[in-house]
Design a protein around this nucleic acid. Structure first.
Length: 273
DNA sequence: GCGACAG
DNA sequence: ATCTTGTCGC
């Protein structure tokens, strides 16, 4: 019987985060440029592949998520989708059914979820390089994290790809909590802003709270993952939000769930035959 | 010591 | 993350 105490596991995980964090880049560092704001609205508009400087325009944005089976909590489905920023249509999707022994520990989500997602990215790079994402949106935080190195940073560094972290709930860090954020959102001077900087007690800006849609009271929490600045991340998130959750994440989530649901459906069917 | 704690 | 029904509104 081999049961390593959680404290021992955490020590190795802490060292890994500390090591990987040395490679983290928190400013714009990519080989594409943002599309002109007007071109996004016109789906019929055939966008130039290249611009004058020979730099490609951002077009393929990936989204990753993992869903879990309610019947078997160890069974998980990792999902990678890629969307065309022009049309918001999906140009690629892939799934990976795995057994997850690693528990979820707050602050260490990457050790549970990153391996499956990395495998999906590597598989795509081998087989379908044409649509390989220029940017990846991750269901989980970037530097909005106790040690400034959440899942989005972890994935970005390991796959060497620009990433943006998207949290649907706030991870309490540096004095930021539900009530402090609620105060920020309700503050008169912030009422008309479409995003609010998440400034902790220390003065550090950890990310931004965004009301994606006009009417959604509950914000999403955007933070820098890798090779991107907060300002650029916010700009892109706004461009790709049809609903509260950015479309790549939302689609990965929906399809991941659907994959497990259909799988469970087949189990029932086979047993009846 | 107790509670809080992305997914 | 997952368990869960209806309900109000465009």
């Amino acid at each position: 019987m081999e049961t390593s105490p959680p404290s021992q596991v955490d020590q190795n995980w802490l060292l890994a985060q500390e090591f990987l964090k040395k490679k983290l880049i928190t400013e714009d560092s990519f080989i594409w440029k943002l599309p002109a704001p007007t071109s996004i609205c016109r789906a019929t508009d055939v966008q130039e592949e290249e611009e004058e400087e020979g730099m490609k325009v951002l077009r393929y944005i990936g989204g990753v998520d993992i869903s879990f089976s309610k019947e078997d909590p160890l069974m998980a489905c990792g999902t990678l989708v890629v969307l065309d920023l022009h049309t918001l249509q999906i140009v690629y999707e892939d799934f990976s059914l795995v057994t997850l022994d690693v528990p979820y520990v707050p602050g260490f989500l990457a050790f549970r979820e990153a391996p499956v997602l990395l495998e999906l990215l590597e598989k795509m790079k081998r087989n379908t390089i044409h649509f390989y994402p220029q940017l990846l949106m991750v269901d989980g935080n970037g530097i909005l994290h106790p040690r400034g190195f959440g899942l989005a940073c972890h994935l970005g560094v390991m796959a060497d790809i620009p990433t943006i972290g998207i949290g649907k709930n706030l991870h309490h860090v540096d004095g930021l909590n539900q009530s402090s954020v609620r105060q920020l959102l309700e503050a008169k001077e912030n009422n008309f802003k479409d995003f609010i900087a998440l400034t902790g007690c220390s003065g550090k800006i950890w990310g931004a709270a965004i009301r994606s849609t006009q009417g959604s009271l509950k914000p999403i929490f955007v933070s820098v993952g890798h090779r991107i600045s907060l300002n650029t991340a916010i700009t892109i998130v706004k461009m790709i939000c049809k609903y509260r959750v950015p479309e790549p994440i939302r689609q990965a989530d929906i399809r991941s769930r659907e994959y497990l649901r259909k799988l469970q459906m087949n189990v029932g069917t086979v047993l009846l035959q």
